[in-house]
Write a protein that binds this DNA or RNA. Structure first.
Lengths: 145, 145, 145, 145
DNA sequence: TTTT
DNA sequence: TTTT
């Protein structure tokens, strides 16, 4: 009965996170993440294929994404697969699969993650270094925030 | 640039695998897999939520699924997330996310996986035991088939 | 700086868990877990290799292990690698590597896990089913205990 | 019977890899990898704990490590846990646990991995970019080398 | 020391 | 559509 539903991704943000602050005080962040792999095909040519993932982060990870993540940043994300359904304008049932992340680690050096993305609202708080970027899943009380 | 795209699931098959044998000799198996988790809500009631995943397996894992997997069986599946697009009858772009598995391990005892599923065409070949059910990802040449 | 240290195991307990209850109210469980893989060697013979892992579980997972796990049971364990050092009787520094689990899921059917192991002190409490055996890592407040 | 034995690490090399080329043409690389996590303790102080792992890589991953990895580089490593025993000078049985990696991905930008380590024999080949650094586990025949 |  |  009990199951396991786990996703592990290392990739780059396709855009800056979009963060909404809900009335109940929680925040939710959304962005797309690209995971690429390069291989040689039969003709010996190097080919790169990229998969795009819809990432959803809730508080307190959402706030970390808001403060520190920018378009292009490389991150490790651990989470679970969820599919939700909705009705489109034609009354058809549609499904969207997302990765709800519960663990986020920024990769690369600090300089990789500064200056960064397509967002002009660069915040000096990102200088606080990537040391704070990992959310240990098993003691969420001790978050460095 | 190089990335990681990994999914790890432990769940139960919602139905027998559907297997198609392609002209090029390869086979592809499809089935849905349920991963359930149980927790207590604020009212102290035990609640079970189930997530359904679309699983795709290619040869030689597809043939293992064909021979040994039945509705209800519990399996460990490791693979990667892929999203493919198609056009529906209204000309709208639709997206389907699937887990393409490259590693499959049957769980539980042999007796769990015998007699099994909703499929009446029970095959004695399933008595060959689950020893053959794990496909080591790194030496696919040594598959027990 | 921030890193990832994750271990995922599916295997069988080599013996019943040994559980110690500490003065501070916490409990710690220890047992060995076997992960086996079968492959064909160059001679076409089926060969099984088994790796043994030292598992350490702390409250509240330790109490679950105490109540429900027995020698022979198949489990999914997620945790992290830790190496601790100690001095042997000859004054040499020794190292022991253990997997500290933070997520445990019992596998197989209920019947697999009943009647169970080499332990005669079979407790009817294990009939409470494996529904309680999964510890969702991200809402430990909602543990079914 | 069939089991799962999987380790996933993101960390930094403690030193340049040591690579031995065996008579049979295979190579084996060894290095230590640090995975760090930072959290706040009860006193609100930020604490960093570091775990060291013994990494072993065989061909063809060993050659990649030899060419591209240096002390300090951040990598993603996927592999399995193995414990081997040996006899020390006092005739005591000793055990060493290692992570045998079968998947390696270099993290960060190219500049992170240049100039790098404590090794003076810097090789321009590392400029070939980290695109080549991921070894897809399921088609090892198509390695970009 | 497990499991099939 | 699974499982307990």
């Amino acid at each position: 009965m009990a199951g396991v539903n786990k996703v592990i991704l290392v990739g780059n943000l396709g855009k800056d996170p979009e963060v909404r602050h809900l009335e109940n005080g929680r925040a939710v962040a959304n962005f797309s993440l690209a995971t690429s792999e390069t291989y040689k095909n039969k003709q010996g040519e190097r080919v790169t294929t990229t998969e795009w993932h819809n990432i959803v982060l809730w508080s307190p990870v959402a706030e970390i994404a808001e403060k520190y993540l920018k378009k292009g940043n490389q991150v490790y994300i651990e989470g679970k697969l969820t599919t939700r359904s909705w009705d489109d304008q034609d009354g058809n049932k549609r499904y969207t699969t997302e990765v709800v992340g519960n663990n986020l680690t920024m990769l690369g050096t600090k300089s990789d993650n500064e200056g960064g993305g397509g967002n002009s609202s660069y915040s000096p708080s990102s200088e606080k270094s990537s040391e704070v970027s990992s959310i240990p899943e098993d003691d969420s009380d001790d978050l460095p925030f």
